[in-house]
Structures are given as structure tokens and as C-alpha cells.
Simulated assay, not measured.
Amino acid sequence: MTTEKLMLNKHEIECQHIYMFFKRIFDIILSAVGLLVLAIPCLIIALFIFACDRGPVFYTQERVGKDGKKFMIYKFRSMYVNADTLLEKLKEKNEVTGPMFKMKNDPRVTSVGRFLRKTSLDELPQLWNVLRGDMSVVGPRPPLPSEVREYSDYDKQRLWVIPGCTGLWQATERNNVGFSEMVDLDLTYIQHRSLLLDAKIILLTFLMIVRPKGAY
């Protein structure tokens, strides 16, 4: 897959008004229903997180959304409270290429956090981000500002759409591929996105939760 094949037309993407209208309705319904239905499971997860080390249940972090707009993302905390301060010491052990940090046996992750990450349950609070409109159910992973500072113009194309809780990369390859492959998958999704493709990705994500692959 070459870079030339994946150069997108921003005007065409922004003119998909009908698709975006129904996508937003779908996001509101799914996130609202999800927050209600999953309220008790989320409470149980919160109790396990607190019992693990008596720390905060939720973790908030600044991320970059559509067209570079920054927002605070919500997740169940899967790492120890001082995880951010330890990152600099671990950067040389990064197991993926490009402006993204991933480490399979990350010592900052709690015992409860390992399960949450493997099953992607740590991402459930992002339904609130979807309801607010910061994110969509399906879309590219929202990057950190530090990652975006290292983006090329080609990479920045993935910021042309609203980021998602799950996407083509998360539902297929996850951590089995590096940064450049992730960008290619995101741009492929943006190029071909539709309600049918979104539904397919959501189904694949559920299968990924049941049978985790490449999650850590």
C-alpha cells in the first residue's frame, strides 16, 4: 500500500453531510443506551479498581480531535497513579515505531488494569465523550498532543475526522502493527467510511473483546 494511494480529499470528506447526520444520531443513541445498560458493570469495575490500590477510578488525559481540537478523554484507570512520571524512563523500551508508546509488559499497569486493557473495558467511559460529541463510536484513535507534534502532513490526515472509541485498526490489527500501518488503516477507513462499515467495525470490536488479540 503506497502513500500516494492514500492521499485524501478533505473537501470530499467534509461534504459527507448525510452520512455525518445519521452517524451523529447513531452515536447519541448508542452512547446513551450504553451508559445506562452498562451502569452496573461500570460500578463493579470501579470497585475493583479502587480495591486494587485505593487510587482514583477514572483517568483523564488531553487528546487531539478533529482538526487539531483538544479535549479531555475519560477512561477507567488501568495504571498506577504515578504512571505518567515513569514514562520518560521507559521510552527506550517502546515496542512500536513512530510517535506512539506501547510496551507489552508495561510495569505501570495494575493487575486489574491488565484485564481491563486486554478486554478494552477501560475504554467504556469514552461513551461519555461520544455523547458530548468529542468522539464518535467509530473513528481513528485520538492521539496525544506529543504524538501529533511528530506527525507528518500525511499522518495529519487522520485528524480530518472525529476520533472514535474503536476503528479499523483497533478492530483488526491493534498492537500487531506499527504506527505507519495504523495510519494507513485509519486513512483506509476514512476513505471508505459508511454506516455499513461502521457497523462491521463495531461487530469486529465485540469479537475482539470476547477473543482479545494484540491488546496490552
Rank of each mutant, 00 (worst) to 15 (best):
I49C: 12
W169H: 11
Q170S: 11
S180K: 11
L197G: 10
T166K: 05
D186N: 14
P41W: 12
G55Q: 12
T60V: 12
N105Q: 09
G113M: 02
E95Y: 06
L195T: 07
L127R: 05
V37C: 14
L116W: 10
R132G: 10
L197F: 13
E62C: 07
F179G: 04
M208K: 11
Y74E: 05
L131H: 08
A83E: 06
Y154A: 09
G55P: 15
Q191F: 01
S111R: 14
Y74N: 08
H11T: 15
L36D: 03
H192N: 15
K91F: 07
I28N: 01
E181K: 13
L86C: 04
L86Y: 00
D84M: 00
K91N: 07
V161I: 15
M103I: 10
R114W: 07
S194Q: 07
T3R: 13
R174S: 06
G133F: 12
L159Y: 04
E95D: 08
H192I: 01
I29E: 02
G214A: 05
E150T: 01
F22K: 05
I162H: 04
E4A: 03
S120E: 07
K5Q: 09
R24H: 10
E123A: 08
I201N: 07
V183C: 06
P56C: 04
D67I: 00
G55F: 03
F206V: 15
M208E: 07
K75Q: 09
R108Q: 06
P212G: 02
L43R: 05
D134P: 01
I28G: 03
C52S: 15
I29L: 14
Q126D: 00
T60E: 15
F26Y: 09
C52W: 09
Y154V: 03
C52M: 10
N176V: 02
R117K: 11
Q126N: 07
V210A: 14
P56N: 06
G139D: 11
H192R: 13
N129Q: 06
C15M: 10
R211D: 01
L127Y: 06
T166P: 00
E14W: 02
G113D: 05
V177T: 15
L187Y: 09
Q170T: 10
L185Y: 12
K70N: 07
L144E: 13
L35H: 07
M100L: 13
G68C: 05
A51T: 08
G34F: 05
I162A: 14
R117D: 08
S194M: 04
R114H: 12
S194F: 04
G214W: 04
R77Q: 09
P145C: 15
A51M: 12
P142V: 11
A83T: 04
C42Q: 11
L43I: 13
D53N: 14
K10C: 02
R24Q: 08
Q191D: 13
G34M: 05
E147I: 14
D153A: 15
D134K: 07
E150I: 00
L87T: 08
S111D: 05
T172N: 15
R132F: 09
P142Y: 14
S146V: 13
H192K: 14
S136Y: 11
Q126A: 01
P143V: 13
V137Q: 02
R211F: 14
M100E: 04
V33W: 03
D84H: 00
D153R: 12
F50S: 12
L87I: 10
Y216G: 06
T60G: 12
A171R: 13
